[in-house]
């Protein structure tokens, strides 16, 4: 056994320990990225190996919380991939308009940038007041930030550019107030958003959604967990409900590939098909 094999064994034990002790289940995450992030934490903490780290994370909750932040990726931006939001306006909004009341689930919403982007879009399309948005994440720190709706002012230029490219209909500055180092999103965007704790690896269905967005989350999961989560989305969507994935994610290799139809293939927008058809 070389040190790589030993390390893989230790990693497996550590993920098992995290699951048993704290309930977070990283066992079916894509390994390379998890391992890389744990390894960098180990180097930073000047630890010799994963076993030493496992000991610490079992006895020191604050250490586990730091590691949890390393393991949950919270990189996002407003109107990320403007062409996606363009496609939402053009092809998904007309579908939503058919319903008197709309339910949207943002799964893995991280610090909320994309949730607020959606809220802006709905407002501009005159649908916000009849919509309830459920925004969930497994990371409470990220969720708290999302709820606060306070963002670093340094990113504003990129967000404004994204917003304009995405087909935005007013001035982006209508939606926030700027302070010295941060911007605060407008209160009116928050009123129909419910932020809550939900772990895609361990928690269950969210019922009767018209639209589910889960972008750049599945890439961190292995095939089994991807299949579980897509199944969860299938069961949480109402008939003809829409599912949106990240630009490099697809259902092509999923167990559920025949359970969905393309709405906009290149933007990874799908429609749930009737269960009889599967």
């Amino acid at each position: 056994m070389d040190d790589i094999d030993n390390q893989n064994l230790e990693l497996q034990l550590m993920l098992e320990a995290i699951h048993l002790k704290y309930g977070y289940d990283f066992r079916n995450y894509a390994k390379a990225s998890v391992k890389r992030r744990i390894q960098h934490r180990m180097t930073k903490e000047k630890m010799a190996n994963f076993s030493e780290m496992q000991h610490k994370l079992l006895y020191d909750v604050s250490f586990f919380e730091r590691l949890l932040l390393d393991l949950s990726i919270n990189v996002t931006e407003m109107f990320r991939d403007p062409t996606f939001y363009m496609a939402l306006r053009k092809f998904v909004i007309p579908e939503l308009r058919k319903h008197p009341f709309i339910k949207i689930w943002h799964a893995g919403c991280s610090t909320g940038e994309e949730v607020y982007s959606m809220a802006i879009l709905l407002k501009e399309e005159g649908l916000y007041d009849q919509t309830q948005i459920y925004a969930t994440d497994m990371n409470e720190v990220a969720l708290k930030k999302a709820k606060d709706g306070i963002f670093d002012i340094g990113k504003l230029k990129q967000y404004t550019k994204n917003y304009q490219k995405s087909g935005g209909q007013s001035a982006f500055s209508d939606y926030y107030s700027a302070h010295y180092e941060h911007v605060v999103v407008d209160k009116s965007l928050k009123k129909n958003i419910l932020f809550s704790d939900h772990n895609l690896a361990t928690d269950g269905v969210f019922g009767e959604m018209n639209l589910i967005l889960c972008r750049n989350v599945l890439i961190y999961f292995n095939r089994d967990l991807q299949n579980r989560v897509v199944g969860l989305f299938y069961d949480s969507l109402c008939p003809d409900g829409i599912l949106c994935l990240g630009s490099k994610e697809s259902l092509s290799f999923s167990k559920y590939t025949n359970a969905f139809d393309d709405v906009v293939k290149e933007e990874k927008i799908y429609r749930r098909l009737d269960s009889e058809l599967i």
Binding site: N8, A30, S33
Partner: peptide, 29 residues
């Protein structure tokens, strides 16, 4: 990233050396 079963993974974690994609992330894995 490259998995040990020789498949690819992608990640949007923050830039490494101001870069995404980063050479270090590919080489390391």
């Amino acid at each position: 990233l490259i998995e040990e079963d020789r498949t690819f993974s992608l990640s949007v974690e923050g830039p490494v050396n101001y870069s995404r994609p980063s050479v270090d992330v590919l080489f390391e894995t």
